[in-house]
Amino acid sequence: MSRLRGFIWFLAGVILAVLAGFVAYSTLNRVAAAPVAADVSGPTISVVAASRPLQPRTLLTQEDLTLIELPAGSTPEGALDSIEAAVGKLTLVPLYSGEPVLIQKLVDPNVRAADGRSALFLSQDQVLMAIPGQDLMSRVGVLKPGDRIDIFYSLPFPENRGIGATDEEDKEQQATFAVLQNVTIVEMVGGIRPLDASAPEQAAPAAVRPDSLLVTLAPQDALTLKYLIDAGGVIDIVLRAPGVERPFEVAPVDIDYLINRYSIPTGPGR
């Protein structure tokens, strides 16, 4: 009987020890978590961060940026608190998704140097080229710096280029094709600019119509575009959706393409 009583007291002691250990463990966890909770509930600051991975010399748009909350005491120096302050700037270094955007990692392409030139940031394998703003998209004022565009051209081509063909046999047929895709507008130069909104007596124009669009291209692409401009081709620009950079599969369009696609009847008996 005494042996059973001793076993019961031993079992009770073990249970009490386990309970005491559990209480002590829970208390230590609460104590350790208390500073973290206090830090999370402390004051925070909204800062601009990259919404996706960005390469150097990226012209920032609103789609590239987002706002995140950081503890006030750990905000990095140079952090921006407004997305508008970063839009239109060029990145000098790569940025990861969610990384704060710092002012010292950006350059303003619109800052004019003493010689009047913009502080454009070009890579070593690119050149800066001006495209005449003669297309309809430029004239209606839809385009803006940072937009990604595709460039289309229409140009007449000889129908018969065979050896021995005479001038009389060489008839021209117009073809329209995509010359370049996913080109970034770096700047828009000249033309009508918005008037000062602080002057109420002046009526602001409905749209900004630039004289030229500045784009960065590979040298061979720039040379191809110059040939088409010099040849008197008709240029048109289409605007891509934000964030869409993939190539589109498009075929050149001429009269034969239209006849075949739309089953247009031609010739006698149509």
Rank of each mutant, 00 (worst) to 15 (best):
A17D: 01
L155A: 02
P56I: 02
E201Y: 14
V208C: 06
R270K: 12
I237R: 07
R148T: 14
I103M: 04
V183N: 01
Y25D: 09
F22K: 11
M188C: 04
A165H: 08
V93E: 10
P210D: 02
A241L: 10
P35A: 11
P265K: 07
V111K: 08
M137F: 13
L120C: 01
K89C: 03
F10I: 13
V40Q: 10
A85N: 02
P71R: 10
I237E: 11
T58Q: 02
R270G: 12
P76E: 06
R117N: 12
T58N: 10
L19F: 14
D147V: 11
P76H: 09
R240Y: 06
Q62Y: 13
T216K: 12
I8A: 12
I45G: 06
Q124L: 13
G73W: 11
P252W: 03
V111P: 05
A72G: 04
D108E: 02
S2N: 15
G232A: 08
D81S: 15
F157L: 13
T91F: 02
E159N: 15
L80P: 12
L16G: 04
P252D: 05
A204K: 11
A207D: 07
V250W: 00
P268F: 07
I131D: 00
I255P: 05
D167A: 15
R30W: 12
G116R: 06
M129N: 00
A49R: 05
F248D: 12
T166F: 07
A199S: 14
G146C: 05
V215I: 14
G116D: 00
I151T: 02
S74Q: 08
G162P: 07
A251L: 13
R246Y: 13
I163A: 08
A231F: 05
R246E: 15
S2R: 15
K105Q: 13
